[in-house]
Design a binder for these strands. Structure first.
Lengths: 124, 124
DNA sequence: CCTTGACCTGGAGTGCGCTCCAGGTCCGAG
DNA sequence: CTCGGACCTGGAGCGCACTCCAGGTCAAGG
């Protein structure tokens, strides 16, 4: 088990086939293998890279920055420092995002308790 | 202190003036007062409603659903049950979103520790 | 009286991230 | 031999949430 059709890859990665093609086209996926008739053949490595992309995407990293990261990832370990910095910046944004969500969630829960009949009267 | 110009409101609410106009146009803001020359005059109530909108927006609620909520909010307490349900659904989505972010953040931190020189070798 | 600047309107434009489409190739099952 | 279905390409289209623009109004300051 080490090579996957586009459909299998879509299923395993959670990206649609169209998105996989799109990602390859814009350069997020480098060197996807092809079989004799020109069809894509994904490897386990491709799949784990897709996992990374999914992680970045789901945490809100813009495509442009993912592109930057994948360019760095195609470089050797001389790009480690830069990749580290990029991920650390991103991590801080994720942290902030979580904190914001938690704070806003409190307000929502407060509103919920109001509508449940326990809160003090408030606007709207 | 109870009425605000569009500029003040933008500053206090965190929405741009254009967004405020847009929100009024699509019906997220009902009955914003106008002065003699047709300019918007926002009240403290408007401001607190904007705070609610901001909360919903920042937690990822789509405009269409905010619209539904504001229609309900214009109704009386006979819409409390529906508002409650809407917010509870949303709260669950926020919860899920936070969990996802936390999970993905772990992967990022793991990658970071790898690039910092402490991790086991891994792909990309 | 004239200018400035904050505001108004309707409507067009933008950026992002896909998603869909037409028209074609290839391969295995019946 | 034919058919269906998964895949290919380049490029157009879409949904969302704004954001910008042209052309106009109004009130206050110099």
């Amino acid at each position: 088990m080490s090579s996957y059709s586009p459909a299998e890859t879509a299923e395993k990665s959670g990206f649609s086939i169209d998105t996989l093609r799109y990602y390859e086209k814009i350069g997020l996926l480098g060197g996807i293998a092809r079989n004799a008739s020109g069809r894509r053949v994904f490897s386990d490595d491709d799949l784990s890279w897709l996992g990374m992309l999914r992680c970045l995407r789901e945490t809100g990293m813009p495509i442009a920055e993912m592109l930057r990261y994948s360019e760095l990832a195609r470089g050797g370990q001389e790009t480690f420092a830069e990749r580290l910095e990029l991920l650390q910046d991103h991590d801080r944004r994720v942290e902030a995002q979580i904190r914001l969500l938690r704070a806003q969630q409190k307000k929502i829960k407060w509103k919920i308790s109001f509508y449940s009949g326990k809160g003090v009267p408030e606007d709207d």
